[in-house]
Simulated scan of single mutants.
Amino acid sequence: MRKARNVKIWMVSFWVLFCHNAFATAQNPDRLIYKGDTLFIFANPLEELYKNDSIRPKFFAGQAGCITTACWRGYVADWKIENDQLYLTGISSCCFRDDGVRANLKSLFGDKVIDGVVKVDWFSGNIIAPQGKMLHYVHLGYESIYERELEFHFEGGRLSTTKTYDNSKTRESIYSKSPGKLQELIYSSISWDKLADTGEEEIRVFVSFSANENGVVDSVKVLRGQNPDYNLEAIRVVKLIPEWDVFYRHGKHQRTSWMVPVIFSSSNRKKYSK
């Protein structure tokens, strides 16, 4: 599983909301059967076995299994927990529903296959199973936030503990979801009459900000600015954002840093000055 960073720096432009990272899109998850339920999991235990790519076999032995941007590893694995033991039960093509391509576990694991499954002894760590409603979508890996997370901790393939985390306090601001509203708020709040007209020049002040667990923007600073008057005005108007995103992961508030450019220009002055 890719570990989520405690702090991310995202950039809010007034046309597009950027949040790029290593993967091009959210990933097709592996599946886990636990107590009769099929769960989707944010982890890939098979990757622990093949950390060294030189020993990674061709799972589908010449069959035309597909690879997509939503399945970077080239397969989807199936798992089950039985009597607190983790088992690998199958490896399928990313497009199994369409192409029906499945790996032969016997050819991959030999005598380790008993009754059609492989007893896992190579994996130690956590597996997260998201549960409930998705509260925040992230266009990469396994970063999206759900109402709850069921965490399994394994030592050598043996289940040692389970925990449930509540992320239900996560919420998104209308200003992050609608850059146009954020633009309107910031530029209509600027005291244009107190600032000299920039003429044909554009003055750009890049401001970093973050919010507390109540969505209150309580940390604002200039990352790159110019004239102190414009810097202070950029800080002031960003502080006026009435509410911002609140993210919880593993049941804890995750403070996130954002960056927004505040552009002082004649065109913005004409459009937004009162």
Rank of each mutant, 00 (worst) to 15 (best):
P45I: 01
P45C: 06
L46C: 04
L46A: 06
E47K: 12
E47L: 13
E48F: 14
Y50Q: 08
K51F: 05
D53T: 11
D53Y: 13
R56P: 00
R56N: 05
R56L: 11
R56T: 14
K58R: 10
G62K: 00
C66N: 09
I67A: 07
T68S: 15
T68A: 10
T68V: 00
T69E: 15
A70D: 13
W72A: 13
R73S: 13
Y75L: 05
V76P: 04
V76C: 05
D78M: 06
D78Q: 11
W79I: 02
K80P: 01
N83L: 03
N83V: 01
N83I: 01
D84W: 02
L86A: 10
L86Q: 09
L86S: 07
Y87G: 10
T89P: 05
T89L: 10
G90R: 03
I91P: 05
S92C: 13
S92Q: 15
S92A: 12
S93V: 09
S93A: 12
S93Q: 07
C94R: 01
F96I: 03
R97E: 14
R97P: 06
D99L: 04
G100W: 14
G100F: 15
R102Q: 14
A103W: 06
F109V: 05
G110K: 15
D111Q: 13
D111A: 11
D111F: 08
V113W: 06
D115T: 07
D115A: 15
D115E: 15
V117F: 00
K119S: 15
K119N: 13
V120N: 09
W122S: 01
F123R: 08
F123W: 06
S124R: 07
S124P: 00
G125A: 03
N126I: 05
N126S: 15
N126P: 02
I128Y: 12
A129N: 07
A129D: 09
Q131F: 02
Q131H: 05
Q131A: 11
G132Y: 03
G132M: 02
K133V: 05
M134E: 15
L135K: 03
H136S: 15
Y137W: 13
V138K: 07
L140M: 12
E143A: 07
E143H: 06
S144T: 08
R148P: 01
R148G: 08
E149L: 09
E149W: 08
L150I: 02
F152C: 00
F152K: 00
H153T: 12
H153A: 04
F154M: 08
F154K: 09
G156W: 03
G156K: 13
G156T: 05
G157P: 04
G157M: 06
L159N: 10
T161M: 00
T161Y: 10
T161K: 14
T162L: 10
T162V: 08
T164H: 06
Y165I: 04
D166P: 06
K169I: 04
K169M: 12
T170Y: 08
E172H: 02
S173I: 02
Y175L: 10
S176A: 11
P179T: 11
G180P: 08
G180M: 12
L182S: 08
L182R: 03
Q183P: 00
E184P: 04
L185N: 07
I186L: 15
Y187Q: 00
Y187V: 05
S189K: 03
S191N: 14
S191Q: 14
W192R: 02
D193A: 12
D193Y: 12
